[in-house]
Amino acid sequence: MTAIKPPALSFTEARLRGIVESAMDAIITVDEAQRIVLFNAAAESVFGCPREQAIGSSLSRFIPERFRGDHEAHVQRFGEAGVSSRRMGSQRIVLGLRSDGQEFPIEASISHVSEDGHRFYTVILRDVTQRWLAEKALSASREEVREFALAASTAREQEKSRFARELHDELGQALTALKIDVSWLRESLMGAPDAVKAKLAAMQLLLDGTVAAARRISSDLRPLMLDDLGLAAACDWLAENFRSRTGLACELVLGEGDLDLPDPWATAVFRVLQESLTNVTKHSGATQVEVTLVRVAGEVVLTVHDNGRGFSISDPRKPGSQGLTSLRERASLLHGTAIVESTPGRGTLIELRLPVRDAEERR
């Protein structure tokens, strides 16, 4: 005798079947042996496989061969995990395999139910090829922009270096020669009228100030010791210059290992330290600064910590203030990170991390 389904149940099944068939996402259900028992119209379109050929076949036919073993183990662990559903491939791209052998990226979720002692797994997936291509193009575009910005930054630093060296070597030497000549005149004209002596003395003072200004401008543009003596010596000079200029305590700790990086890594570290100390002078009201520069686990790490007034990271940025943005930009150009931590009344910590594997290849 054949059992007759209640009308309500038949209507529910028909409605559910209609929902599954009209869904825009591919829906596939497999049994415990991972044999396909449901394959909707969207799945036919996505995989290019008629339903009649898919039903009863193994799900592995739609998975690239190199992933089949791992997939079966993942599904088994999912069934034993005690959760009813989860997203697949949340940490990486999941690939499907069309009937014509073409691989394509998918976004999928999996769930399971038990019926009459048997377990069934349902996968809902969508083809995200267009999104993946768009993200890939966007990533390539960002990399091109980053490389262009890095090249522009390097060109600026090279021009600053050239100008600083010309100031130091040519203008500096000329001013030094003038100082010697004025000193000679003062000694040779000891019996000259007082007005002449006063004028020569004023010329001497003006030349001294001009020489000092030329040296300061040259150092601000780019300290020659960064190119001549390396990063460690340049950072030591920067800390000493900060102490003498501000009167604040500044402790510099250089870690072990090779800290003399090539450009543009050396320039990035130096500029971040320079800008950080400038921010301390302008904004922090600190009395002490601690600077550490170490190389660890394939990274060079610079930290600058002051005991100043601090600030709230969430506060709106002051108009025209680009200091912290500049730090992050310098870091991102070299695939690094710049972290700023600050709390009102508890000072500010700036940490720069730059991967240096590429730097080794540049040597």
Rank of each mutant, 00 (worst) to 15 (best):
I4Q: 05
S22M: 03
I27W: 01
I28G: 01
A41T: 12
P50F: 12
I55V: 15
R66Q: 13
D70Y: 03
H71E: 06
E72R: 13
A73N: 09
S84T: 13
G89I: 08
S99L: 15
E103M: 14
P105K: 14
S109L: 01
H118F: 04
R119S: 05
Y121G: 03
V128Q: 13
W132R: 14
A137N: 13
A140F: 10
S141V: 04
V145E: 14
V145Y: 10
F148N: 13
R156C: 06
E159Y: 07
S161R: 02
R162M: 08
R162S: 04
L167T: 01
I180V: 09
I180G: 03
V182H: 10
M190R: 15
L206A: 14
T210Q: 08
V211L: 08
A214K: 00
S219Q: 01
S219W: 02
R222N: 00
M225I: 05
D227E: 10
A232R: 14
A239N: 03
N241L: 01
V253C: 07
G255R: 08
E256N: 09
G257A: 09
L261S: 11
W265G: 10
A266S: 14
T267Y: 02
A268F: 05
V269Q: 06
V272H: 13
V272D: 14
L273M: 14
T278C: 03
T287N: 02
G308Y: 00
P316N: 06
P319R: 03
Q322V: 11
G323A: 12
R328T: 09
R328D: 08
L333T: 07
L334N: 09
H335Q: 04
G347R: 00
R363L: 08
